[in-house]
């Protein structure tokens, strides 16, 4: 089985020369570790570091911006909540399998976490079964987490039902965690909204949305397309019907607005990912937004 973590690392190294990697480091650090008061050491400033953390005296001394680092008070727990139902085995807007993008996104965040010594756990499943990986902080454990998501998501999986995983989370955990939900463009029902409302109080929630493919797009015009939920065919004649693309786009935009409003209300930071190439910038965006939102 090819290592999923290696893929994540190679993805990050692609972005290294653009300093996105370093930005990610900074964002992640300030997200979780910027709040400690016990001074640890100084290091060179990297973009994304809190401006208030810059040690101006040291900067003047060294002639280059220096940032204070603080000792983390404790290890954080990143708990991934991943949908591995058959919805995630469908394709994304760019034609890649949504589960692959989900693995990559979880991998990037999980890799940052293990590098900082934080713990990474997983709650994943579909409507029938919820799997749990305890929180741990090794590369091998992270690989196991990613492999679980990867292997569990197939077209033969049971239908997606995030409610099961969210209520599992609500039932089983008393301590505060960073919860990262990896899901798709699903609409949230009343049950899920209520659960999230309750969970948002206890945890910090980040929501990664993997965008669904647009069935009216020209790239799918000549393809045989079916709905994963019931296997129903969607004839090209219907998808390419005049004016339907516009109507669909409006519907998707309306849904996105609605869920955006909900997330804003609940204080959940969210990002949307369309393709594998967008994963690293999207995760960065997520961290930046989360930092800003907390303030």
């Amino acid at each position: 089985m090819p290592s999923l973590l290696r893929k994540v690392k190679s993805k990050l190294s692609i972005h290294a020369h653009r300093r996105v990697s370093a930005l990610l480091e900074g964002e992640y650090s300030s997200l979780l570790h910027g709040r400690s008061v016990e001074f640890d050491d100084l290091r060179h400033y990297v973009p994304g570091d809190e401006l208030t953390d810059i040690d101006w005296k040291a900067t003047a001394r060294m002639g280059t911006p220096m940032t204070r680092r603080y000792v983390a008070t404790r290890k954080h727990t990143i708990m991934f909540v991943a949908d591995t139902g058959r919805d995630m085995a469908a394709i994304s807007a760019a034609g890649e399998t949504k589960a692959d993008i989900a693995v990559l996104a979880a991998g990037v965040l999980g890799y940052l976490a293990t590098r900082h010594g934080d713990l990474v756990g997983l709650i994943a499943g579909d409507s029938g079964h919820t799997g749990f990986r305890r929180a741990a902080s090794t590369d091998g454990h992270l690989e196991g987490v990613l492999q679980f998501i990867h292997a569990a998501t197939t077209l033969d999986s049971r239908p997606s039902d995030l409610t099961t995983q969210l209520s599992y989370l609500a039932r089983r955990f008393r301590r505060r965690m960073i919860v990262v939900v990896v899901s798709d463009d699903r609409r949230l029902g009343d049950t899920e909204t209520a659960l999230l409302q309750r969970l948002a109080v206890q945890h910090e929630i980040l929501w990664i949305t993997i965008c669904d493919a647009d069935p009216t797009s020209g790239e799918l015009a000549s393809a045989t397309v079916f709905e994963v939920a019931d296997g129903a065919r969607l004839p090209a004649f219907l998808r390419s019907s005049h004016g339907l693309a516009h109507e669909y786009a409006e519907r998707v935009a309306a849904d996105a607005r609605a869920i955006g409003d909900l997330f804003d209300r609940l204080g959940i930071t969210t990002t949307r990912i369309e393709r594998e190439a967008d994963v690293v910038p999207a995760v960065l965006r997520l961290l930046v937004e989360h930092r800003r939102a907390r303030r």
């Binding site: 058959r86 919805d87 995630m88 085995a89 469908a90 394709i91 949504k98 077209l155 997606s160 798709d184 463009d185 699903r186 609409r187 669904d212 493919a213 069935p215 799918l220 393809a223 045989t224 397309v225 079916f226 709905e227 994963v228 939920a229 296997g231 065919r233 969607l234």
Partner: peptide, 8 residues
């Protein structure tokens, strides 16, 4: 089920 799978 053959072809391109789509969700939602």
């Amino acid at each position: 089920r053959t072809g391109t799978p789509l969700a939602h």
